[in-house]
């Protein structure tokens, strides 16, 4: 029996999850900081929007994304004009979809971690000559480091486990948009159960390892010291 090479699929999945996590940390950090500190009346609306991907069927999100990213869509059309390439059924499109889909998994832990940073400690830093950006780097980031670790790991893992959105906007192009979860679906459809077993087993072990690490991280007492 000859197995289809798995590596391109695994590599593509890891690449998508890596890029998505990077983008999510860049976008999610200011968003979570704003949510943790603001008393703005729009806060609840933004929180609901951020959390929406948790409850929406991926097909709903995928459907709207397909329309928005499509060649005539409000995002897809200008992108096509600018770059000459469509957004749907491409890696870039997958990243956009994954960012939206995994957003709550990154924003929630960061929001919690930022919320736990005492305002009094930040006030003390302000009186010790630290400006806002300095305070964020020297106080907030180290105090919220577990939040960052959890956010990154959950964002990464959730993107690896994504199926519906990718199928809707990325399809199933091996080496281009075929990620692990879709490859499994593909193998099962074509009755190649042995390959499906390998891929499904990989994802199972990976997901378990990630969650185990996250829970261990949350249980461990705060020991690391810096002079």
């Amino acid at each position: 029996m000859e197995l289809t090479p798995l590596w391109p699929t695994v590599a593509l999945t890891l690449q998508l999850a890596g890029v998505t996590t990077g983008v999510l940390l860049l976008l999610g950090t200011p968003l979570a900081w704003w949510l943790a500190r603001t008393r703005n009346r729009w806060k609840a609306v933004i929180e609901a929007l951020v959390t929406l991907p948790l409850v929406l069927p991926p097909t709903v999100l995928g459907f709207y994304l397909l329309i928005a990213l499509g060649p005539q869509g409000p995002l897809g059309a200008p992108w096509l004009q600018l770059t000459g390439a469509p957004l749907t059924f491409t890696f870039t499109g997958l990243v956009i979809g994954s960012v939206l889909y995994s957003l709550p998994f990154v924003v929630q832990p960061l929001h919690n971690a930022f919320g736990a940073v005492d305002q009094g400690v930040l006030d003390a830093a302000a009186t010790l000559r630290a400006g806002p950006w300095d305070r964020f780097k020297s106080i907030v980031v180290p105090l919220a480091r577990r939040g960052f670790a959890t956010a990154a790991v959950l964002g990464f893992a959730h993107t690896v486990g994504e199926f519906g959105v990718v199928l809707m906007i990325g399809g199933n192009i091996p080496g281009e948009t075929q990620v692990l979860s879709i490859a499994i679906y593909d193998r099962v459809e074509s009755l190649r159960y042995d390959e499906a077993h390998v891929l499904a087993g990989l994802l199972l072990v990976f997901s378990f390892a990630v969650l185990w690490w996250v829970y261990r991280l949350q249980r461990r007492p705060d020991v690391d010291a810096r002079p």
Binding site: V121, D123, A124, I139, L143
Partner: peptide
């Protein structure tokens, strides 16, 4: 005191 708990 509002000390920084992540520092010595």
């Amino acid at each position: 005191a509002h000390l920084f708990t992540h520092l010595s």
